[in-house]
Amino acid sequence: MKEVIVLIGNYGSGKTELALNFAFRAARQGKKVELLDLDMVNTYFRLTDRANLVKSHEIRLVSPNFVHSSVETLSLPAEVASAFALDWDTVIFDVGGDPAGATALGRYKEDFDALPEGSLTVLNVVNTRRPMAGTPAKLVRLMRDMGRPSRQAVSGFINNTNLARLARPEDLRYGYEVIREASIASGVPVLYTTGRPDLLETFLSEGHDPAFIGEPMAIETFMHRDWETFTKEGL
């Protein structure tokens, strides 16, 4: 059965980073993967910035129309239909980071509805070190606000709490605590906890309740957003 993963979440929560990690993991398992850049809100730091990297893994990439031309037309290509029409093993949607961005998903409701039961997973990526995602109430409200325009219910949370190059294990712990409250309040389970391998290992050794950790997944960093990496490697 086709596995469809939709990543939603606030700006800077790490959706694109996780989209790449999920895609590469699937590709390594020999799966046929398509990756869709559905971010029509922010033209900086998007999945398409890593187009060459994605293609080098023999993953098909679909980008918004006129991407990287500095023209914001807010339009999606007809090619998005290939996610539903073609025979992929894994399809991953990377969606813009707020209720307006989530609107892009709403347009495909009929296609998502037509998927077989159990095929679709909508993951809400959370970094509680980001300013508008620091409390359980804010997380639940953001999730509700994204649910309406996206016309999709969230299947689960991903705890991806980090401080970029300054990330520490206590960031994951802080995320764990906030997301646990949000999970209890909303009834939405925690499906993954993701982070740099060393940080994740320390966090897991601390003996937290596995019910609010989900599947631990060590990730690699591909999206560089801070100055040190910019001057060395460019955007």
Binding site: G12, Y44, F45, R129, L163, A164, R165, L166, R225, D226, W227, F230
Partner: peptide, 10 residues
């Protein structure tokens, strides 16, 4: 400029 405003840093 856009670099400072779009860049994400701790």
């Amino acid at each position: 400029d856009g670099m400072i405003c779009q860049m994400m840093e701790p």
